[in-house]
């Protein structure tokens, strides 16, 4: 019957709308469902996954020594050329042998895609991915970084 269907239509439509409103009404009144994390305020308690790939860093120990021998396998592994290693030759004081070492480990953070292939390729575990993310800058040039610290040298025994 036409009238009956017409009224049924309206009733079912209103019911479906009421179901939706009931759900949004539930969330409006239940503030414990709010999942917002307030970033700058929760900075002290913010725990990032230790595997999070935020930038490449080169850990230095207390003697200002790192483990990079300058073999450039990371530079070769990098798919988009964000690593450039400038090497030099150190002369060993005792034996007088010339030994390859890094002069500057240039890291283009502006190019880096955090794929992690350089870390995988490194034979001496000299570099790793650090879980940091607060890198924003006003000047693009500041994103080109030198990872080895001034005056640092290769840790003894790392070949």
């Amino acid at each position: 019957m036409f009238i009956k269907d017409y009224i049924k239509d309206i009733a079912s439509a209103l019911k479906s709308l009421a179901t939706g409103m009931k759900m949004t009404g539930y969330y409006f009144t239940h503030h414990k469902e709010i999942i917002t994390e307030q970033y700058p305020d929760n900075r002290d308690t913010l725990v990032l996954a230790e595997r999070f790939k935020g930038e490449v860093v080169m850990p230095h120990d207390e003697n200002n020594e790192h483990a990079c021998t300058g073999c450039t396998s990371c530079e070769l592994a990098c798919p988009n050329g964000s690593i450039k290693i400038i090497t030099k030759f150190d002369v060993d004081a005792e034996t007088g042998k010339r030994k390859k070492a890094i002069d500057t480990w240039v890291y283009h953070l502006d190019l880096c895609t955090m794929c992690g292939l350089c870390v995988e390729a490194c034979p001496t575990n000299a570099i790793k991915m650090a879980p940091t993310f607060e890198h924003s800058v006003f000047d693009r040039n500041k994103l080109v970084k030198k990872l080895n610290e001034d005056g640092s040298k290769v840790r003894a025994g790392v070949e």
Binding site: L48, A49, R51, F52, K53, M114, G116, L117, E120, M129
Partner: peptide, 20 residues
């Protein structure tokens, strides 16, 4: 993020298996 180290573009699969 916990396993692969990124949220969107992970690069977790390598030829022969997975990275970690």
């Amino acid at each position: 993020e916990e396993t692969c180290g990124a949220r969107l573009t992970m690069n977790y699969y390598v030829p022969g298996g997975v990275m970690w």
